[in-house]
Design a protein around this nucleic acid. Structure first.
Length: 545
RNA sequence: GGGCCGGUAGCUCAACGGUAGAGCAGCUGACUCUUAAUCAGCUGGUUGAGAGUUCGAAUCUCUCCCGGCUCACCA
């Protein structure tokens, strides 16, 4: 049974699944694992007939703490202010920085088939007063909260510290304030110039009501408050939070001891490592997370996250490897299995579940999707490198019947993916390059029969002047038949002469895409015939004209 | 220092107490409209090390080694 189905089978009653994210920067591929996992859990629950609400929170009251994300003139002014209060740095008309980035991940998620029932903005939840009861309890039990921080996380807050962050009335910052008093209705806070290194408080202090959006709870309490407020029963989180003494453990303790509510079930998940290292834009060519998302289509990306168990790290190294073609092949294998076809190799017990969860739409006709014809990625990658090839026509010929609309769609997606893969990641051996300048060294290894074949081919080509791929193809076979030569050897000779490798794309179409003079010259050279002076002159004249 | 994941064939991984497997790669062979396709076959492993439990261990326990991520300020 798939991990998500196992989880679904272990719960009863209506479920609320939740995740949230600070809308500060771009969404990286690795950070998509959480949302995909959550989406799959929601689908699994529903497939098991469990009433499920899928929520996604935007933590937009969090302070801006990254200079790099602001324009130069905005840094001094905006650092430390709530993301929801910072103007959009772009000019696409969003009411705030937070809204802009919230939209980015809403769009990104939708592109992956992830559509929560509801997105909520913490700035709106605070403003509505819904968090007020939690704020009151937290302030009343401040000493207990400090004790939990000490016990669980070994974090020492001073005795006057209260679990609340006020938005400074004077400068609007929230990251620079500390609450040091609570009289039951108002808190006393200071906006300290050097409370944090990344932002500078204005020095203001005073009494203020902590309610109705004037303040926010610190992260660990806010998390626990969200659980209570929304009735969350399942919330996965990454291993950065799930670690011992980490954020999750603190929030769990606060939920139990301060808000007196059992925390949701955790599904800790590991990260996605690119090439054995954490994702980094600086390492390697094309290893940047967003680039991977450009090359790997949504369903394959989902598949990458759905197949392994959440708590195992995913090693993905697309750079100069066959990791991406393999991902497609694996996906296709699961598709074939889901279609009830005989499949080579090993599969998990329920491949059709994994396949279904990889699909963009939870409502998709799994059987029909599984049965759709999918051309092998590496084959598509080969075809797109040959000039003048009609890829859909070729694939249709391979299938043996016309492609359906959906199959054309899949093919178009793969064609794009293949081209980007070749550009960004593919090893040189995956690339077809006609060696125009010099005779490939490998030609030396051609057998005498292969040389004779190439020579004979040159003669026939000169007289018959094939111009289309089909004409060339027919000629190749005809000459091979005359020489009673197995096509394997004759084609290898062609490939070696032009590409320096024993295999390649359909030879006829390859030759048809090159200038006839070059083809003839190369065939003769590879056959071991030295061109005469007159021939050389003719070739030069032809190529310069 | 704490936590998590991993170390099984060249590569990617499966097997989770019952004879170590698959895909890819490699090698053989087959194939007269293609060949990075398809088909058949072969090679390849003291399961990181050591000890323990067991009739039986890749699997459970303990110790260690190695790799990676992560936390220890905030979120």
């Amino acid at each position: 049974m798939d991990w998500a189905d196992e989880l679904a089978a272990s719960v009863s009653g209506p479920q609320v699944v939740n995740d949230s994210k600070t809308p500060s920067g771009t969404v990286h591929v690795g950070s998509l694992r959480g949302p995909v996992i959550l989406d799959v859990i929601a689908r699994a629950l529903r497939a098991n007939g469990i009433e499920t609400t899928y929520l996604y929170g935007v933590d937009d009251m969090d302070p801006m703490d990254a200079q790099a994300l602001l324009s130069a003139d905005a840094v001094e002014r905006e650092m430390g202010r709530p993301l929801a209060h910072i103007p959009d740095q772009g000019d696409d008309g969003h009411p705030s920085y937070a809204r802009h980035h919230a939209q980015v991940f809403i769009d990104t998620f939708a592109g992956l088939g992830i559509n929560p029932d509801r997105y909520y903005l913490m700035s709106e939840i605070y403003a509505s007063g819904q968090v007020d009861p939690y704020i009151r309890v937290a302030l009343d039990r401040a000493s207990q909260v400090r004790e939990i921080y000490r016990r669980v996380a070994n974090v020492q807050h001073p005795d006057e510290w209260h679990p609340l962050q006020v938005v400074c009335e004077n400068c609007g910052r929230i990251g620079t304030t500390i609450v040091t008093g609570w009289d039951g209705e108002r808190v006393f806070y200071e906006c300290r110039p050097s409370l944090v290194a990344w932002a500078r408080g204005c020095g203001h202090s005073g009494w203020i009501s902590p309610f109705g959006g004037n303040a926010k709870l610190p992260w660990n309490l806010e998390w626990a408050a969200q659980w209570g407020l929304l009735g969350v029963t399942i919330e996965p989180c990454g291993k950065d939070l799930s670690t011992a003494g980490g954020s999750r453990e603190r929030s769990d303790a606060i939920s139990r001891e301060v808000f007196e509510r059992e925390p949701p079930r955790n599904v800790p998940y590991e990260f996605l490592n690119i090439g054995g290292r954490k994702m980094s834009t600086s390492k390697g060519r094309g290893a940047a997370a967003h680039e991977i998302a450009e090359v790997v289509p949504a369903e394959q990306l989902r598949f990458l996250f759905v197949r392994p168990k959440p708590n195992s790290a995913i090693e993905f190294d697309p750079d100069g490897t066959d990791a991406i073609p393999r991902l497609f092949d694996e996906f296709d294998k699961f598709a074939a299995a889901a279609a009830g076809k005989e499949v080579r190799g090993e599969l998990p017990p329920n491949p059709e579940r994994v396949f279904a969860y990889s699909l963009l739409s939870p409502a998709a006709d799994v059987r029909a999707e599984a049965a759709a014809f999918r051309a092998a990625f590496s084959h598509v990658a080969l075809l797109v490198q040959v000039p003048g090839v009609d890829v859909p026509a070729r694939i249709e010929a391979e299938k043996g019947s016309p492609l359906t609309e959906r199959e054309r769609e899949i093919l178009a997606e793969r064609t794009t993916a293949a081209m980007r893969w070749l550009e960004a990641y593919a090893a040189d051996r995956a690339k077809i390059a006609v060696q125009r300048d010099d005779l490939p060294r490998e030609v030396a290894a051609l057998g005498e029969d292969q040389r004779l074949y190439l020579g004979a081919l040159a003669l026939r080509a000169e007289s018959e002047r094939p111009s289309t791929g089909e004409a060339w193809q027919a000629l190749l076979f005809s000459v091979a038949a005359d020489a009673t030569m197995p096509p394997g050897r004759s084609f290898a000779a062609i490939y070696i002469a032009f590409l320096g490798r024993p295999n390649g794309p359909r030879a006829g179409w390859l030759l048809a895409s090159l200038e006839p003079q070059f083809v003839l010259r190369r065939l003769r050279e590879a056959a071991g015939w030295r061109p005469s002076e007159a021939e050389l002159a003719a070739v030069q004249e032809a190529s310069s004209s």
